[in-house]
């Protein structure tokens, strides 16, 4: 890539692809996979989420990974991002309660308040 125009084109395309409204997915589950998260089981949480999403054929759910936000003592941490809704961050997860969150929040649309550690208004989905 050699010009600013090319760069901006890639930026706009990538931005669009990241937005849920432009994709086949309606919900994005983002797992924090930094060292702090992995050290307390983020990989198992990720596996459980994948498993639950596949088993239930939740084709509208995208599972993605990210680094760490700094919430170390609350790891493993995941974000659930949905169009027109606040981003909900869950913490202190185990594979079991991650499965519960997939069922309750992602499938039934009910926030599992026991594990919520933060919420954030989301304007860019």
């Amino acid at each position: 890539m050699k010009t600013l125009e090319e760069l901006r084109k890639i930026r706009d395309k990538a931005k669009k692809e990241m937005q849920l409204r432009n994709s086949e997915y309606r919900i994005k589950v983002v797992v924090g996979m930094g060292t702090s998260g992995i050290a307390v089981g983020a990989r198992d949480v990720m596996k459980a989420i994948f498993d639950e999403v596949t088993k239930r054929k939740l084709d509208h759910v995208l599972v993605a990974q990210t680094g760490e936000k700094g919430l170390s003592s609350m790891e493993p941490v995941i974000d659930i991002i949905e169009k027109d809704k606040s981003i909900v961050t869950y913490g202190h997860l185990t594979p079991e309660n991650a499965r519960k969150i997939i069922v309750e929040h992602v499938v039934n649309g009910r926030i599992v308040s026991d594990f919520v550690v933060a919420t954030k208004t989301n304007l860019e989905v």
Binding site: A14, K15, T66, G67, V77
Partner: peptide, 16 residues
């Protein structure tokens, strides 16, 4: 941090 996928340069492009 904790928002984009650190393994994917395109997500970094998306943030400008």
């Amino acid at each position: 941090c904790g928002v984009i996928d650190p393994g994917n340069i395109e997500e970094y492009f998306a943030t400008g």
